[in-house]
Design a protein around this nucleic acid. Structure first.
Lengths: 207, 207
DNA sequence: CAGCATAACAGACATTTGTCTGGTATAGCA
DNA sequence: TGCTATACCAGACAAATGTCTGTTATGCTG
């Protein structure tokens, strides 16, 4: 391997490692070595050490594949993004099971004060909230554990089925109000309904 | 370590590994072992092998820290997330200038075939599209350069002001139809209107 | 009960991976 | 010219990590 101008190989190595890290996979020294055709591992090691020295990489010592991107290189305010499980439509069949087997994950920005497990996402069925701009097929992101507050849009668990409605708490008890004149207000008897959380965000793909 | 009911420990191990992987960091067998207090590495290895067998995990063999989530569990695909500039409301004042000075960036998943510069985001003003579930304050993500197709929801530039409407192309020329009976259909004379792109996604924060 | 599957353990072993020490070559510079 | 910094090589070594083989115990089931 011929000698290259100062910094050139180092930059190429940095880009290679960075791209691998962005794919979520820290390479080993020998993987980098093979990729560039170096005949010595040490060549890679010294370059990576230099990159750490320069602050372009971070290394967790005492472990294999320990290189990481420093926060400035990976987060352009994306660091608050968390994978929130998308549970699908959660029709009859069980909510708890759906939590364990999500359809996928959605990148959602959640506040630092909150835990990732406080959030999940659902796909909306039915037209009952179309008056509030929530259409079938939309995805709602739900914050759990929030104390039920009258007037908020919530996800309620009624007979093992999740449903999106606007919550009203009055002297007559709990009301789940659709936002569509074609649907009726639900007044579930106490104990038969559990409020899973409140809708904090809505996403719609238009294709 | 006492014997636990079948599947219970395996589920706990799965959740632990999954969470580590979602943090972008594959744990080693001995890290899992330490976390659960097992006295044998093999305990972890057999559980993880079983999880791979069940299809709940994937393993890249011949390498350390080789466990990954199968695509169904990890398809949050953070790699495709790109910072799309949020231009604000783009009232009178100029669209081109707004492109230069975005209010911020939004993480948006865009297809590999498309370029980042093909996208921008706008905040919606007015009630004219509320019938289509697009409310004031919502953020729409717009794909530029798409050839105008009749029936799509588009962003049009009318007298230096961006507006969201449904596009209709007919023999009588171009129509921009609001989705709200309180608003009128716009029929801009040819040349006075530019279609900036089509709305591909909608996001709404509910706070 | 016997048979079987599973959970967990024990310890050796092999492979991967990171670290170290020292060497060669080349370019730039005083 | 000699000095120095950098790129790269060579090989040994140590630590981390994964794999294997065999054992013990427990619950389930026919």
């Amino acid at each position: 391997m011929p000698k290259t101008p100062p910094g050139q190989t180092r930059n190429r190595i940095f880009r290679f490692v960075r791209d691998r890290l962005l794919e979520g996979d820290s390479p080993s020294l020998r993987e980098v070595q093979r990729h560039f055709g170096f005949r010595a591992v040490e060549t890679v090691r010294s370059h990576l050490s230099a990159l750490v020295e320069e602050g372009r990489l971070i290394k967790k010592s005492g472990r294999s594949r320990g290189y990481r991107l420093p926060s400035s290189a990976s987060d352009w305010s994306f660091n608050r993004l968390q994978p929130v499980p998308l549970l699908g439509e959660v029709a009859a069949g069980g909510f708890e099971e759906a939590i364990e087997n999500p359809e996928g994950n959605l990148p959602v920005e959640i506040p630092d004060s909150r835990d990732l497990s406080d959030y999940f996402a659902l796909r909306v069925r039915g037209e009952s909230m179309s008056g509030a701009g929530i259409l079938p097929g939309d995805t709602v992101i739900v914050e759990r554990r929030a104390a039920p507050v009258s007037g908020q849009i919530v996800v309620a668990l009624l007979e093992e089925e999740a449903t999106v409605k606007r919550l009203h708490l009055g002297p007559g008890g709990m009301e789940l109000r659709p936002e569509n004149p074609d649907f009726n207000i639900l007044r579930p008897p106490p104990g038969s309904c559990r409020i899973l959380g409140r809708v904090v965000e809505l996403r719609r793909q238009i294709r």
